[in-house]
């Protein structure tokens, strides 16, 4: 039977060149390596371009703006008034409301799924939570103005504005529940079973074990969930733009029943186009400045959350 493959025989007389693969196969392998490395480099390039874009745009803004105008009565970009505290307060108010909605519900769901739920229930609920995470934020914005404000909030507040921070905050809260529940559940499940058994072994009831043993052990992970959830809420755009209003112009105010623009809704308003052409050119540049602020805030929060999660992973 003839040798099926063209190959030099085994045995003495073997030369180094016999132990080489064909140029074609080696070239493919080397080429693939470079292509994969190039793709990895491209992801770094995306970050670099984001930083370059927001930083250079923000610099253009800072170098031209009169600093007094950053602390004037409110956010009126076309009139050259860029009061940052107006946007900051609104962003923080809405995000805090969102956390008040999302943390109890998200943590509750996480504890239930991790400590109480039957595996079958868990198997259904986990994908449901994933499904919830994919609800488009515009839909929640519409939900806020068509249901949360008119059908719920008007029962409690007589003179609530059609656009208001409270409804926006609640809707953002609904949006971040799945994220918070997911991170919290991971943190709870990272707590070793041995700890729970040790507690049960001392005669503790399940509720005691959950609250006194499991929750403290998972505390850093739960903190991370809050931080990352807060970061997600600060960065949420569409819900706030639709439900809270005030993205184009806002007077400083603290009332939750009033409308108010945030970093993100101000950016969306500026990006809607009209400001690019008409009015103060500085207004358009402020878009990048806000982007830079938002990028920096969320980056710090996410890195903090990431750090905590990583430390948790090493703990057990």
């Amino acid at each position: 039977m003839a040798p099926p493959m063209s190959t030099t025989p085994h045995g003495p007389g073997l030369k180094v060149t016999d132990l080489r693969t064909s140029v074609r196969r080696r070239a493919w392998s080397a080429g693939a390596r470079w292509a994969f490395a190039l793709a990895a480099l491209a992801t770094v390039l995306v970050s670099a371009l984001i930083i370059w874009t927001v930083a250079s745009g923000a610099w253009t803004f800072i170098s031209q703006v009169a600093f007094d105008n950053l602390t004037e009565i409110g956010w009126f970009p076309r009139r050259g008034l860029f009061d940052l505290s107006t946007l900051l307060v609104n962003s923080v108010q809405i995000s805090v409301i969102a956390m008040l909605v999302a943390v109890p519900s998200g943590f509750g769901a996480a504890i239930y799924l991790s400590e109480y739920a039957h595996p079958k229930v868990r198997k259904v609920m986990k994908p449901t939570l994933e499904l919830l995470a994919s609800v488009p934020s515009v839909v929640l914005g519409v939900f806020a103005i068509s249901f949360i404000t008119p059908s719920i909030l008007t029962n409690f507040f007589d003179d609530i504005n059609f656009f208001n921070k409270l409804a926006a905050g609640i809707a953002v809260g609904l949006l971040v529940i799945p994220l918070i529940a997911s991170i919290a559940e991971d943190a709870l499940r990272a707590v070793p079973v041995a700890l729970r058994e040790a507690s049960s072994g001392l005669g503790a009831r399940k509720v005691t074990t959950s609250i006194r043993v499991v929750l403290p052990a998972a505390m850093s992970g739960l903190m991370a969930a809050i931080i990352v959830g807060f970061s997600r809420a600060i960065g949420e755009t569409m819900v706030v733009t639709i439900a809270s209003g005030g993205g184009d112009t806002s007077l400083f105010n603290l009332a939750l029943t009033e409308s108010g623009g945030t970093f993100t809704s101000a950016m969306a308003a500026l990006g809607l186009g009209t400001d690019q052409v008409a009015g103060n050119n500085l207004a358009f540049q402020s878009l990048y400045f806000l982007g830079a602020l938002l990028f920096a805030i969320t980056l710090v929060l996410n890195m903090l959350g990431d750090l905590i999660v990583r430390r948790l992973q090493n703990k057990y």
Binding site: S47, V54, V228, I234, E236, T237, G271, F295, L299, N302
Partner: peptide, 20 residues
């Protein structure tokens, strides 16, 4: 880099898209 990109708010990507 990937972990950080995952946390960048979507509207900031809009700036990247617009400028670049």
């Amino acid at each position: 880099n990937i972990r950080n990109l995952a946390g960048v708010p979507s509207i900031v990507y809009g700036l990247l898209g617009l400028a670049v």
